[in-house]
Design a binder for these strands. Structure first.
Length: 476
RNA sequence: GACCCCUUCGUCUAGAGGUUAGGACACCACUCUUUCAAGGUGGAGACACGAGUUCAAUUCUCGUAGGGGUCGCCA
């Protein structure tokens, strides 16, 4: 990179094709582009590559917007829809044609597939054989609409100075004359990206490794148009847990699916950031630190596997760090779904009080609301199987006697509650567990819950005594 | 098949000629303890293989093997 370029404002872009949801791979690409732009105090642009009108959908465009919003990756300026530049792209193709840097090709799809068959049979790379490159257009069939192909260099090599992969050399003989304009006159992706990256002033194209070969062809096109290609950074792909490519039919989920699983956006970003990028031993990295630290040369070159365990663990950490108010609003939709109705606002303080205790016990928002569900249940509680076993006649008797002690309590604070319950256990020579577990079962209907005194405080005196009363009432 | 890229614990990675090869997740044990977690302590666990270069290679070079990607009038 020369000095002029260093002084230029960095412009990155995320350029997804709207043919499906935004999955983790795309999300990471977007994150890296965003981080690099913010780090360099440059611009992060968003371009929707919808030149394949047959496959692009409105819903997919929306899904991409939603996904980026969830991840909090805001772009600068207006969104560019690639299809809107079709006319200019087509004009560029004609300009190349007139300059003798492109030519018309009248091959039919059938001829092309024959060519591929033959190349395969001969063990060659399946390339277009350039049969119309120097052929007289007068020989053109009249019943075939031509495409415009790029007259690519035949000899020598094209070098992509990749910021992640290093210098990648491709022999020009390995690249064929790509189609610039389809027979219906519409531009192809290859032409459109080059034109748009140039027009948008993109200085750094950070994208998936699967575009590496394309980078060589795009470099040739840039040069033919008299433009300078952007700096490229091809980041390794994300693989599934089994090492195979992560695809829509193989483990790749929409980022929205992770949101529904109760993953926090911050955790997702932190996880994605550490997939292929590192800053010595740092693991928990805030957005602010990431912006400060993010450099392209710290991106690894080998593909990484997607590890849900790791994401979950990170998510647990972010949940514990989350601010209560924020967490509460994040929890709300999950709670409504679990309860199959809006939670009673009058009961929300219970959740709020139990939040600190709930935080250490969940790896995602779903687990969290499940652990908190008992706070919102109607009494008498329906006990689960093991809770029923714990509340045998003996335990019910204990609860009944404990209830009498608790009713006498003047204050309903952790200290006094603990004193009372422990005192009660001591007085009968009972181990704490003998009292706590029946208490837990009575109060929550389950055998697993946050600390029992936290539970009692969250439920409040009246509700707690009521629930214990339900159990005590069984003692005949 | 051709071309391109990759290769450190099971996974994500640190490392950039000389380290007891470090951290994180997961795993195991212990601890804390009213359950479950969280926390704390400790443990097991890796430089794919083969040649070179060098006094010295995980680190540099070249092969081999394995993995991945690309070869559309898709993007």
């Amino acid at each position: 990179m020369n000095g002029d370029q260093e002084r230029m404002t960095v412009v990155t872009r995320f350029a997804p094709s709207p043919t499906g949801f935004l999955h983790v791979g795309g999300a990471r690409t977007a994150l890296f582009n965003w981080l690099y732009a913010r780090h360099a105090k440059g611009k992060f642009l968003l371009r929707i590559e919808d030149t394949d009108r047959a496959r692009s959908t409105e819903e997919a465009v929306q899904a991409i917007f939603d996904g980026l919003e969830w991840l909090d990756l805001s772009h600068d300026g207006e969104v560019v829809f690639q299809s809107e530049g079709a006319e200019r792209h087509a004009a560029l193709a004609h300009q190349l044609l007139e300059a003798g840097k492109a030519y018309r090709c009248w091959c039919t799809p059938e001829e092309l597939s024959e060519m591929r068959e033959q190349a395969r049979a001969e063990g060659q790379r399946m390339l277009y054989d350039r049969r119309w490159r120097d052929r007289d257009p007068a020989e053109a069939p009249t019943d075939v609409a031509p495409v415009i192909r790029f007259k690519a260099p035949v000899e020598g090599e094209t070098v992509v100075e990749d910021l992640v992969q290093g210098a990648v050399r491709v022999a020009n003989a390995q690249l064929d004359d790509m189609i610039l304009l389809r027979s219906d006159g519409t531009p192809t992706y290859m032409l459109s990206v080059v034109a748009d990256d140039h027009d948008m002033g993109v200085t750094h194209a950070i994208r998936g490794d699967d575009h590496l070969t394309n980078a060589a062809r795009q470099t040739q096109l840039f040069l033919a148009l008299g433009w300078q290609p952007p700096a490229y950074a091809h980041i390794p792909l994300i693989h599934g847990a089994d090492g195979a490519k992560l695809s829509k039919r193989h483990g790749a989920l929409a980022v929205s699916a992770y949101a529904e699983m109760g993953i926090l956006a911050e955790a997702m970003c932190n996880y994605l950031l550490r997939l292929g990028w590192s800053h010595s031993d740092d693991e928990i990295i805030s957005r602010q630190q990431a912006v400060e630290w993010f450099e392209l040369d710290a991106i690894g070159r080998s593909p990484a596997r997607f590890d849900m365990e790791r994401l979950s663990s990170l998510n647990g950490i972010y949940i514990r760090q989350a601010e209560d108010g924020e967490l509460l609003s994040l929890l709300n939709p999950h709670l409504s779904r679990l309860l199959e109705q809006e939670p009673d606002p009058a009961l929300m303080p219970r959740l709020e009080r139990l939040l600190p205790s709930l935080k250490t016990r969940a790896k995602n928002l779903i687990e969290m609301v499940e652990n908190a569900q008992f706070l919102f249940l109607q009494t008498p509680l329906v006990l689960d199987e093991i809770a029923v076993k714990i509340l045998n006649p003996e335990s019910q008797e204990i609860i009944s006697e404990l209830l009498i002690e608790l009713e006498k309590l003047g204050s309903w604070e952790e200290e006094s509650l603990e004193l009372a319950v422990r005192g009660f256990a001591d007085s009968r020579s009972l181990k704490m567990g003998k009292v706590a577990q029946p208490l837990r079962a009575s109060l929550t209907g389950k055998t697993v819950s946050p600390g029992i005194f936290d539970v009692m405080i969250a439920l409040g005196r009246e509700e707690s005594l009521g629930r214990l009363g339900d159990i005590a009432a069984r003692v005949s």
